[in-house]
Write a protein that binds this DNA or RNA. Sequence first.
DNA 1: TATTGTTATACTCTATAACTATA
DNA 2: TATAGTTATAGAGTATAACAATA
Lengths: 143, 143
Amino acid sequence: MAERTGQLEQAGLAAVLVRLSHLVQHLFSEVNKEFGLPPQQAQLLCHLVAGPVGMAELGRALHLGKSSVTGLVDRIERRGLAVRTPDPRDRRAFLITLTDAGARLAEDSHREVTARLEKLAGELPPDDYARLVSVIERLAAGN
Amino acid sequence: MAERTGQLEQAGLAAVLVRLSHLVQHLFSEVNKEFGLPPQQAQLLCHLVAGPVGMAELGRALHLGKSSVTGLVDRIERRGLAVRTPDPRDRRAFLITLTDAGARLAEDSHREVTARLEKLAGELPPDDYARLVSVIERLAAGN
DNA sequence: TATTGTTATACTCTATAACTATA
DNA sequence: TATAGTTATAGAGTATAACAATA
């Protein structure tokens, strides 16, 4: 790793990634707390914006066990943000669908999270901004 | 934002940051699960590696309320990974200190997390690697 | 037999409020 | 009065195991 030494390397890639991750997680939590949403419920809403999703697929997307998804959907449903509807193609399964209130909340939350993250990075020179997006995209590709 | 359009911008900075954050968090959780550690306890250990820390300072560092820190330290102490020792300069306060077992576990966990993150980014060209570290450091500066 | 989802149970995590003790 | 920390309580999040119903 001699080719990767120097002042910038002192912090270490892992260290800055973890630090950035904490930063983003904290911002996400704080924003959604203002909307009265625990971060896990907010994340669930994010995964429902594109359309109805089954419980099993939610578990895979969120890296959760079946019973964890059951509880999370219970709480989101109790708040009136989504509903379980029977899957017409599988009588065992449900499709979780956002209510109007849930869709509005998801959109508001997403807008605010995006705004604050963009603001965070807004001081970066355009070149750095573009490079950051590019590199992170490659980093996350396939994971 | 016309100066920031193009193929790379389609994903959006916020989106890739959130995605990267999930990626890092999940990796951190998975690694520490192998060590029998919930991610919060692992993060607590990280903050103790540099030396003993008081409860209040832990709360500030981890963005936690006082009682949350009490519980977290209770559980870490029950596992024999750290101990409360009286602060000689303030008879109200404790200094949380890693035990030998806790220090070993923290080091092992850190090594493994670092290795997997470095591996994740190992395919990046050295220039991108250095730039990523540089940009993220500036992004996280002061936050 | 495998998959979808729930229930029961236990533990972890977090916050608020009320409290003790020290600064 | 302010700060360091605990306790009590309540809710949220997660996992494992046992279960029901459907594929």
